[in-house]
């Protein structure tokens, strides 16, 4: 599931969810890192020794919930934007979720933004209570959101309300300059899979080979047919991974 859609499963989430009791105690890191990749900045970031050093750099990070004080240093160092801080001690009814954010414009304190779950679905409008910059060389901002207690383990992303999508101006396929509006029109016309849309419009045929548009088109199809994104038929992934010159293959260079 994660490999296909980028959305972790419930079982994945459970492995990193602290107990109710721990959550109530105060801020704590939720490390939603589920793919064994060669990466370890989080272990270096934590000065409390809460993220144990990895024996193998491909290992998943292991958090010591008792040592973690929710300072959030790891959050802004994780290149995968996989770490969140949840503070369920904020009030009886509300919690704070801290979310890494790397887009412009950066939201303002007091602004209402749309909270999203791990699949990108909207969960409601929530207030920003604090905005932290990552420091001089770190462009990852930490956005503090006030959310209902019940959504503390759900809200994991945000979208500004001022950036409503304009289908005619939103480019879905950057290589071939195809807009969301054009994709939506093709879907309405009856082109029912990514493969068909690719052949009708060239979306995904450019040098990036669909890396950008493939999932965006899948989302549109899922919305149109009211099916989970995971059920949208994926096109064949074709070589080459990277554009290389003919002369290089021919052995001339």
């Amino acid at each position: 599931m994660l490999n296909k859609t980028g959305v972790p499963t419930l079982e994945d989430i459970q492995t990193v969810s602290p107990s109710e009791e721990r959550l109530k105690k105060g801020p704590v890191a939720i490390i939603e890192c589920f793919q064994e990749i060669p990466c370890n900045p989080c272990t270096e970031a934590c000065k409390q020794g809460a993220i144990r050093p990895m024996e193998d750099i491909n290992n998943l990070p292991k958090l010591d919930l008792d040592k973690c004080n929710g300072c959030g240093v790891c959050l802004s160092r994780c290149p995968g934007l996989a770490i969140f801080i949840v503070d369920a001690s904020y009030s009886d009814t509300e919690a704070i979720v801290r979310i890494p954010y790397e887009y412009y414009p950066v939201p303002q304190v007091g602004e209402k933004v749309v909270g999203l779950n791990r699949a990108g679905d909207e969960l409601g409008t929530f207030e920003v209570s604090k905005v932290q910059s990552g420091g001089q060389k770190n462009k990852t901002y930490t956005i503090w959101l006030i959310v209902p207690q019940s959504l503390a383990m759900e809200v994991r992303g945000l979208r500004l309300r001022s950036t409503e999508i304009q289908p005619k101006e939103t480019i879905v396929c950057r290589c071939e300059d195809i807009t969301l509006g054009e994709i939506q029109a093709l879907i309405k016309e009856g082109y029912s899979t990514i493969d068909e849309i690719k052949r009708a419009a060239r979306a995904g045929m450019g040098p990036c080979q669909g890396r950008t548009c493939r999932m965006l088109i899948a989302q549109e199809l899922a919305k149109f047919y009211s099916i989970p994104v995971g059920e949208v038929l994926m096109p064949t992934f074709r070589p080459t991974v990277k554009p290389v010159k003919l002369g290089t293959y021919a052995g001339g260079e």
Binding site: G206, P207, T240, V244, K245, Y249, A250, G252
Partner: peptide, 19 residues
């Protein structure tokens, strides 16, 4: 690539996107 750059040498600078 060998055949194409033999018959049409100029093409050696073109990048392959997909096969």
């Amino acid at each position: 690539s060998r055949q194409a750059t033999t018959v049409l040498p100029l093409l050696k600078n073109l990048r392959v996107v997909r096969q």
